[in-house]
Simulated assay, not measured.
Amino acid sequence: MSSRKVQRLGLEPTVVERLKKHNVFTCQDLLSKTRLELLKITGMTEPRVINILQVSSEACLPRRTTALSMLTRTNEDECPAFFQTSLRQLDDVLHGGLPAGTITEIAGPPGCGKTQFCIMLTLLATLPRAMGGLDGAVAYIDTESAFTAERLVEVARCRFPSHFNQDASFVSLTSRVHIYLESTCSSLLSRLQHLEEELITKGIRLIILDSVASLVRKEFDSSHLSNLAARTNLLSKQAAILKYLAESFSIPVIVTNQVTTRIGAQRASLQDPAVDEGSAGTVDDCRGDGGSYVMAALGNTWSHSVNTRLIFQYLDESRREVLVAKSPIAPFVSLVYTIQDKGIQLEDAGECIPPTVNLGTDPGLQKIRVRTSLPLLQ
């Protein structure tokens, strides 16, 4: 894509430095220059400048591949095809874990454990390959100030006591987790646009965005069609960047999403005709008053941007349920879990179940159970 960094084009280091001195950092910057400008900037001959433009143009094109190369890539040790969650039943259902090179969404109401799951995944990504980890750093983009280093250390100590038994191991863990606090949609988009260089220099093997819905729901009023169009455009840009990073670096990208209340069947034709009340509903029912119900936020356009959707929802006061609501390889499966000191813990084996509501096969319309009575951890 056009935001690809020039240092990833295979150019000579001296050429890259000359380009950077003239504020040419991406393919878009390079392609916006004329041949004459590039001749002056690089000091190279015209054939070499034409070759650089050709290389840059090809880098912006969608990557072509074959089924054979995809199959071969899944067997390469340096690029694991799946990121194991350490939850055996869930990994088995997903045929190995969360797929690398794609976007996995964790959707659910407040308190169901979305951030707890992300913190656990952050820990796992830093572990050695022999322990099922990615042996890399993590980019954790926090839009709700929900991440806590204390919880990360607690999960590490409780989940892997033999590995994290010295201060040095905790120093190694926390130094590989890079937290980016973003408070506006523009700052988040800018962060994503400049994240590629961070992945290269810091050895990042996992990207987490917690949450994708928080900022857009604060800044865009979806009741106005003009705002809805602008919001959809922004989300599409974010999804495109995340997909590019996931595919280019063969890493998993995790995003969390909030829930919203869809009011009545008469408004079902709108993209996201939602009231921003993520806590509506009851403990055991996903329906609200007047035929309304709770579902994942951001509408159908966003739901089609993610490759895998896991829905976290409530069962009762202590137990919760994860649904594999969308996956190119996994069936619709329900797994029961609890939140403990060591993170998410599954209770029993999963069972293939029919959807809780008859809304076809669109995961964007899957109803979600919520609760409002107890203020639990996000």
Rank of each mutant, 00 (worst) to 15 (best):
L11K: 00
L11P: 09
L11S: 06
L11W: 07
E12F: 09
P13R: 00
P13W: 07
T14I: 12
T14F: 11
T14H: 12
E17T: 08
E17Q: 12
R18H: 08
R18E: 14
R18N: 13
L19R: 01
L19F: 08
K20Q: 15
K20S: 10
K20V: 12
K21N: 13
K21M: 09
K21Y: 03
K21E: 15
H22N: 15
H22S: 14
H22G: 01
N23C: 10
N23K: 12
N23I: 00
N23A: 13
V24H: 05
V24F: 06
V24Q: 01
F25T: 02
F25A: 03
T26V: 07
T26S: 14
C27T: 11
C27W: 01
C27H: 03
C27E: 03
C27S: 11
Q28M: 11
Q28E: 08
Q28S: 14
Q28K: 15
D29Y: 03
L30I: 10
L30V: 08
L31V: 02
K33Q: 11
K33N: 02
K33L: 12
K33W: 05
T34R: 07
T34M: 07
R35K: 13
R35E: 14
E37M: 04
E37N: 03
E37Y: 09
E37P: 06
L38F: 04
L39S: 10
K40E: 14
K40D: 14
I41L: 09
T42C: 12
T42E: 10
T42I: 04
T42L: 06
G43C: 02
M44R: 15
M44Y: 08
T45W: 04
T45M: 11
T45K: 15
E46W: 00
P47C: 04
P47F: 04
I50M: 10
N51V: 08
N51R: 13
N51D: 15
N51A: 14
I52S: 00
L53V: 10
Q54K: 13
Q54G: 15
V55Q: 08
V55K: 03
V55S: 02
V55E: 06
S56I: 03
S56N: 05
S56C: 15
S56A: 15
S57H: 07
A59P: 00
A59T: 03
A59F: 00
C60P: 01
C60T: 12
C60M: 11
L61C: 11
L61N: 11
L61V: 11
P62H: 02
P62L: 06
R63P: 01
